[in-house]
Computed example of a mutant assay.
Amino acid sequence: MATMNFFRPFTRRSVLAAGTALVAAASTHLAFAADWPSKPVRIVVGFPGGSSPDLTARTFADPLSKLLGQPVIVENKVGAGGNIGAAEVGRAKDDHTIGLMINGNMTIAKILNPAAPYDPLKDLAPLSLIGVSPLVLTAPVEQPGVPRNADAKTFFAAARAAGDKWSYGTPGIGTIGHLGTELLKARSGIAPIHIPYSGYPQVATAMLGGQLQMALLPPALALSQAQAGKLRLIGVTSSGRSALAPGVPSLVEAGIKDFDLQIWNAFAAPRSMPEALRTKLAGMLVEIARTPEVREKLFQQGWQMVATSPEGLANRVQKDTQELSRLIKEQKISNQ
C-alpha cells in the first residue's frame, strides 16, 4: 500500500518566501517600536504615595520620560498588598502602561487567592528586577514588658511570653512582610496577630501609635525611625548583616536558624504588550538603574541595585514562586 506524504518538501522558492516574510514582520515590529510611545506612559504602583515602591517608581519616571520623549506618570492604585495595581497592569491594553511590583505581586498572588483578578504568571511580562533588600524587624522603643535596651534574644523572650496579645503589621496578606513574619513565628515560637495595612509607612505609624508591637520594615524606613529615637531595630532578615542596615545584627545571630528572606521590586508590563516594546522598555530601565545618580537614590531608599534583563527577572519569579508556595503550604496561609 502506498504511504501518504503529509509533508510537502521545501523548495528554494518557499524558503526564500518564508525568509522574506520574517524580515518584513521584523521590520514592521521595529518600525512600531520606533514610533512608540505616542502618548504619556503610566507607571502603576499598588501602594500609597511615600511607600518604597512609590519612591522607586518616581525615581525612574523623570529619566524614563527623557528617554521616551513623552511624560511618564506615576499612578497609585492602592490595596490588597499591591495586587489591585498589579491587576490594573495585567489588564491594560493600551501599550502605554507598566507597573512597579513587589515579590508577591509577581509570584504567589493567585496561589494565595484563586479568585485574584489576575494571574501574575499569565498576565504580567517581566521587564527588570531593579533592587533587592532584607527587611528589618522593628519594635517601639517604649514597650511594656521589654527593657529599653533589650537585645534580640530578650525581645523574643518577651514576645513568646506575650503570645497572641501582641500584634504585627504588614502592607497586606501575601506580602513578604506577612509571609516572613509567619515564618519567623514558626521558627521562633512567638504568636503575634497579623493586622494588614495599605503600606509600610502606615505600619510604622501604627507601631509608633502603640497599635502594633512589631513589624518587618524596609531598611530605609526602619533606620530613619530608629535614628529619630522612635523605633528599635531587632535584626535583619538576611542570613548575614547587610550594608543597607549598618550595625544591625541578623536574626540568625539572635538564634533564628536558617532564616534568609529578601524583598525585591521590579518593573513588569502587560503580557499583551508587544515583545519589541517590552525589549525597548527593559533596556531603558536597566540603563537608568545603572547610572550613578539612580543607583545612589535606590541605595538611600533601601535597595541594592540589580537591574536584570527580562530573562533574569523571569528566573527570579520562577524561583521565588516555588519557595513561597512551599512556605504558604507549610504555614497554611490564605487570604480567602
Score class of each variant (00 low, 15 high):
Thr175Gly: 12
Met101Gln: 14
Ala245Glu: 10
Asp260Ser: 10
Ala57Trp: 02
Phe259Tyr: 13
Met284Leu: 11
Gly163Met: 02
Val146His: 02
Leu16Pro: 00
Tyr168Trp: 08
Lys77Gln: 14
Ser14Ala: 15
Val286Ile: 05
Thr170Gly: 07
Ala282Tyr: 06
Glu88Thr: 12
Ala268Thr: 07
Ala21Gln: 07
Phe267Trp: 12
Pro246Phe: 14
Ile173Tyr: 13
Leu22Ile: 07
Thr138Cys: 11
Lys329Leu: 04
Thr154Glu: 10
Ile288Leu: 08
Pro171Lys: 15
Leu313Pro: 04
Ser14Leu: 12
Met101Asn: 13
Lys332Cys: 00
Ser242Leu: 01
Ile288Trp: 09
Glu75Arg: 12
Asp35Val: 01
Glu142Tyr: 15
Val89Pro: 01
Met1Ala: 15
Ala268Asn: 08
Ala206Ser: 12
Gln300Trp: 05
Ile176Trp: 02
Leu261Arg: 11
Phe7Pro: 00
Ser272Glu: 15
Thr138His: 03
Val317Ser: 07
Ala268Phe: 10
Phe60Asp: 05
His194Ser: 06
Gly174Ile: 03
Gly180His: 03
Leu184Gln: 04
Lys110Ala: 09
Ser167Pro: 00
Pro201Trp: 12
Glu142His: 15
Ile84Leu: 14
Asn113Phe: 05
Ala276Glu: 13
Leu16Met: 02
Val41Met: 07
Pro63Asp: 15
Met214Arg: 09
Val44Asn: 03
Arg290Val: 01
Val146Tyr: 01
Asp95Arg: 07
Glu275Pro: 00
Asn335Lys: 13
Pro53Ala: 11
Gly145Cys: 09
His96Ile: 01
Val78Met: 10
Leu285Asn: 07
Leu183Ile: 05
Trp264Cys: 02
Gly104Leu: 00
Val203Asp: 00
Lys257Met: 09
Leu324Asp: 11
Gly46Thr: 10
Val78Gly: 11
Thr11Trp: 06
Gly229Ser: 08
Val141Cys: 03
Ser272Gln: 15
Tyr200Asp: 13
Ala25Ile: 06
Gly240Gln: 14
Ala21Val: 05
Glu311Lys: 11
Gly235Ala: 04
Gln202Ser: 11
Ser325Phe: 12
Met1Thr: 14
Val146Ala: 02
Asp123Asn: 14
Ser167Lys: 12
Glu287Gln: 13
Leu251Lys: 01
Ala266Trp: 01
Val203Ile: 01
His29Met: 04
Leu121Ile: 14
Ala206Gly: 03
Val132Ile: 15
Ala80Ser: 12
Ser65Arg: 10
Tyr118Asp: 02
Ala314Gly: 09
Val141Asp: 05
Pro219Gly: 08
Glu330Lys: 11
Met106Val: 15
Ile190Lys: 13
Ala220His: 06
Ala206Phe: 06
Ile190Met: 15
Glu253Thr: 00
Asp260Val: 01
Pro147Cys: 06
Ala57Gln: 01
Thr291Asp: 10
Asp54Pro: 00
Ala191Asp: 15
Leu124Val: 06
Thr170Asn: 07
Gln225Gly: 00
Phe155Arg: 08
Val286Gln: 03
Asp94Thr: 12
Val132His: 14
Lys122Arg: 11
Thr11Asp: 05
Arg8Tyr: 07
Ser65Tyr: 12
Asp95Lys: 09
Asp260Lys: 07
Arg8Val: 04
Ser128Asp: 02
Gly235Phe: 03
Thr181Tyr: 04
Met305Ala: 14
Ile84Asn: 11
Ser188Asn: 09
Val252Gly: 09
Gly229Tyr: 07
Tyr118Asn: 05
Ala162Leu: 04
Gly81Val: 06
Leu183Thr: 09
Arg290Pro: 00
Gly235Tyr: 05
Glu296His: 12
Leu223Gln: 11
Val136Leu: 13
